[in-house]
Design a protein around this nucleic acid. Sequence first.
DNA 1: AATCATCCCAACCGCAATAGG
DNA 2: ACCTATTGCGGTTGGGATGAT
Length: 250
Amino acid sequence: MENYLVGLRKGAWTSEEDELLRKCIHKYGEGKWHQVPLRAGLNRCRKSCRLRWLNYLKPNIKRGEFAEDEVDLIIRLHKLLGNRWSLIAGRIPGRTANDVKNYWNTRLRRKEYPSKKDPYVTKGKTIEKIDVIKPQPRAFTKNNIYSKVKPTTIVNVNKDCVEHPLPLCIDNNHLKPLTKTTAMNSIPTDHNDENITWWQRLLAESETETVLFNEETQSGDLGLTSGSSGHDLDHIWSFLNSESDDIVGI
DNA sequence: AATCATCCCAACCGCAATAGG
DNA sequence: ACCTATTGCGGTTGGGATGAT
């Protein structure tokens, strides 16, 4: 198996190769990567083609320095999700998982591991320690003791994406428009309370984490203020409210 | 100007998950 | 239920660019 890999080109892509790949994707669309080298007339393996497209050639990929809010979001999402780069990148329009991973490994990680052992520590720089919450398992069951209560989400965002300083309340299993009273009543103050879900706890412990609340759809969503489209919270919650006891991935 | 160290990013590799027969 | 092919992900590496000495 994989004998076809013998003699394949490796290393940096040429502009000619890029053009061949671009034309192929435009003609046949994304996917079916195993067919791409043949269709494009490229002497590259399918993985290389896929990576080149996703990380470099794909339209709308943002280049250049990360903006302050992007960096802030990466840090916060990394606290919540750990090294799940594709999930993190999915919340940052125009950035690829590779971009985010590289950025973290080359610049942000040094803040986390300011020890001499870390090869990325730059001498003489003042470094701030980041407290990282270990990522949770990707799957859980409905019977998990932490899965009984819908998470209290934090920070409301209206149509203009203006951040609201108060937590958002979920009352009697229903997401409700925020009021000061319900919000304050819904804040989990005791982190050891069994009635708090693991992600309620995560959010509560991650003080600056934000959850966007769409007032039109009455749904919560982790993400950027510039229009991310994830559905993790609703996905999880609809599962918890379903009859199924199957394990679900996040 | 030359050399060395460090930074940064594109690309590769291995493996787990998923799809399909 | 099992097997194989394919996809997608995260960890790691190679090498060019840049900065320091």
